[in-house]
Lab assay of single mutants.
Amino acid sequence: MASQGTKRSYEQMETDGERQNATEIRASVGKMIDGIGRFYIQMCTELKLSDYEGRLIQNSLTIERMVLSAFDERRNKYLEEHPSAGKDPKKTGGPIYKRVDRKWMRELVLYDKEEIRRIWRQANNGDDATAGLTHMMIWHSNLNDTTYQRTRALVRTGMDPRMCSLMQGSTLPRRSGAAGAAVKGVGTMVMELIRMIKRGINDRNFWRGENGRKTRSAYERMCNILKGKFQTAAQRAMMDQVRESRNPGNAEIEDLIFLARSALILRGSVAHKSCLPACVYGPAVASGYDFEKEGYSLVGIDPFKLLQNSQVYSLIRPNENPAHKSQLVWMACNSAAFEDLRVLSFIRGTKVSPRGKLSTRGVQIASNENMDAMESSTLELRSRYWAIRTRSGGNTNQQRASAGQISVQPAFSVQRNLPFDKPTIMAAFTGNTEGRTSDMRAEIIRMMEGAKPEEMSFQGRGVFELSDERAANPIVPSFDMSNEGSYFFGDNAEEYDN
C-alpha cells in the first residue's frame, strides 16, 4: 500500500510504541512475548500442572481467558453494579484439565481477579502490559475465525453469508486497541457500523446529549479505520460520505453494504499476525530463551520457528480426527482463516481442507461434555516452508469459486491468482447506482469489472525454506488448481455463540 510509510507498523501498534527502528520493534515485541511466557509459567505453578498438562491447549485457553477477564475493567465495573446470582464479580476462573488415573478430569478453578492481575503485572515488570493482553485477544479471535462461520451475524446486519472472507476479527472485544483495529476485516468494521446506525434509528437519543457526542466521535473513528483499509480513492470518498452524514440511517447502511461487497474484489488491507497460545510461549521462556534479547516478529519467520520446536497437546472428542484438529489450530496460529487453501497447503506441506470436510468441533470443551471418553493427542503445528504475512489485500483475480465463501483475504505475501467468483459478486451490483453516491458507485463498479483474471497478485513473492531466515531465496510455489480455494466452501461450520 502506498501510504505504508505514514502508518505505524503493526509491531508498533502491538507494543504501543512511538516510531521505533526494526531492532527496537523486535525487542519490544519480544518483551511482550516474554511477559506472556513468564505469566503462563507462574500460572502453571499456581495450578500445580504437570509439564504435559501445561502444554494442553484447553488449559492455555482457560488461563488466557482468566487474565483477560481480570483486566476487563468495563465488564468488571458492570458486574459490580449489576450483581447477578451466583456470579462473584471479583473472581474469575474456568475449567482446568488434569490427568488422573490414566483419565482426563475437569476441575473448575476460581481465583481472585486481583490475584491474577498481581501475577500478570509481576510477570511483566510491574506494568499492565496491555500489548500482551491484546495479543491474547487476537489469538482467540484468530481461533474463532478458523472455527466458526459468522453466517447468522452477517444475515442479521443485512449482509450476504458468502462475504465471510471479510469477517476477520469479528469476535475481537471493543477494547483491543490499535492492534485489534489493524486485524479487523472490512466486513467486521461494516458490521460494527451498521449495528451502531441501527441503534440510532431505533433509539432517538442515541446521537443526542453528552453521551451522543461520545457516540458520534466513536462512529467517526470507526469510519476512519474502515476508510484506511480501502485502497481505492472511490471507496475512500464513499467512506467520507458515510462519516460526514448528519443523521446516519438506511442510506448509510446501503452504502456500507455496497462497500463491503466491493471489497470482495477491490480488497481492503487487513493486517495478519501470528499470535500463538500462551502454552507455546511459556515452555520456550522456561527453556531459557530470551525473546527480548533475541527479538521477535509476528509477521516473519519467528512464529514458524517457534511452532517448529513446540509440543502442544489437545483434548480430542471420541469421533474427532486429531489431524483435522491440528489443521484448525495451525490455521489459527498463522492467522489464515480466509487465505486461499492452495497457498496454505503449499506452505504447510500437507493438504489443507475446507472447514466442512474437517471432523472436528471447536477447541474448547463445553462444561456439560462427558470427560470419560476424552483422549488427548499432539497437535501437528509444523510447516514445510515459511512466508511473510501481508497486510495488503493483493490485486484481484477471477477463479472458480464456491457456493460458500466467494473470495479470499490473503494472509501471506505469496504470488498467486486470487480466487473470487466474479459473476456471483457482480450480480449483486445491478441497477442500484442512484442517489448521492452514484458517481462513486459507478466508478467502483467500473474498477471491479476491469479486474483481470490473468493478473498475478504479489508478483514474484515466494515462500522460503525454514533454514532461509533472511528470506534470501524465494520459492514461487505451484498450486494444484483442481483443489478448492475457499475454506468455508459450501460450508456447515458451527455458528459462533458468545
Score class of each variant (00 low, 15 high):
3 S>C: 04
5 G>E: 09
9 S>R: 03
16 D>Y: 05
17 G>I: 05
17 G>T: 05
19 R>V: 05
26 R>C: 10
26 R>S: 04
28 S>K: 00
30 G>A: 04
34 D>V: 01
37 G>C: 08
38 R>W: 10
39 F>M: 03
41 I>S: 01
48 K>Q: 00
59 N>K: 01
62 T>Q: 13
66 M>P: 04
68 L>D: 10
72 D>K: 13
72 D>I: 10
72 D>W: 07
75 R>N: 08
79 L>A: 12
80 E>G: 02
81 E>Y: 00
83 P>S: 03
83 P>R: 00
83 P>A: 02
86 G>P: 02
96 I>L: 08
103 K>Q: 08
104 W>I: 10
104 W>L: 02
108 L>R: 01
113 K>R: 05
118 R>G: 05
119 I>C: 04
119 I>R: 06
124 N>H: 00
132 G>Y: 11
132 G>N: 15
133 L>T: 12
134 T>Q: 06
134 T>P: 01
137 M>Y: 10
138 I>A: 06
142 N>F: 08
143 L>E: 14
147 T>V: 03
155 V>S: 00
158 G>R: 03
163 M>Q: 03
167 M>H: 06
172 L>R: 04
174 R>F: 02
177 G>T: 10
179 A>I: 04
180 G>P: 10
180 G>I: 10
186 V>Y: 09
192 E>V: 15
192 E>D: 01
194 I>L: 03
195 R>K: 14
197 I>T: 14
199 R>S: 02
200 G>V: 12
208 R>K: 12
210 E>G: 08
212 G>H: 02
214 K>R: 06
215 T>G: 15
216 R>T: 05
217 S>Y: 06
218 A>N: 09
229 K>G: 04
236 R>W: 13
237 A>Y: 09
244 E>K: 12
247 N>G: 00
248 P>D: 06
249 G>T: 06
250 N>R: 03
251 A>V: 04
251 A>I: 10
255 D>F: 11
256 L>S: 06
267 R>T: 12
269 S>G: 06
271 A>T: 02
275 C>R: 13
277 P>K: 04
280 V>G: 14
281 Y>F: 08
283 P>N: 00
291 F>D: 12
291 F>A: 12
296 Y>Q: 12
298 L>N: 05
299 V>I: 10
299 V>F: 14
306 L>R: 03
308 Q>R: 14
308 Q>S: 15
309 N>C: 04
310 S>Q: 01
313 Y>R: 04
325 K>G: 11
328 L>R: 04
329 V>N: 05
330 W>N: 09
334 N>S: 14
335 S>F: 14
340 D>A: 01
340 D>F: 11
346 F>C: 03
347 I>E: 09
350 T>Q: 04
353 S>D: 09
357 K>Y: 11
358 L>W: 08
360 T>H: 12
364 Q>I: 15
368 N>A: 12
369 E>A: 04
370 N>F: 01
370 N>P: 13
372 D>N: 05
378 T>G: 00
383 S>K: 07
387 A>L: 08
388 I>W: 10
394 G>W: 13
404 G>A: 13
404 G>Q: 05
407 S>K: 10
407 S>H: 07
412 F>V: 15
413 S>H: 14
417 N>G: 02
417 N>W: 14
418 L>W: 10
419 P>Q: 05
420 F>P: 03
420 F>K: 07
425 I>L: 15
433 T>F: 14
436 R>D: 10
436 R>W: 13
439 D>S: 15
447 M>W: 03
447 M>K: 08
454 E>G: 15
469 E>W: 02
471 A>S: 06
474 P>N: 09
474 P>R: 00
475 I>V: 01
477 P>D: 11
478 S>D: 11
479 F>G: 01
482 S>R: 04
482 S>K: 04
483 N>V: 12
485 G>I: 12
487 Y>W: 09
495 E>S: 00
495 E>F: 13
498 N>T: 06
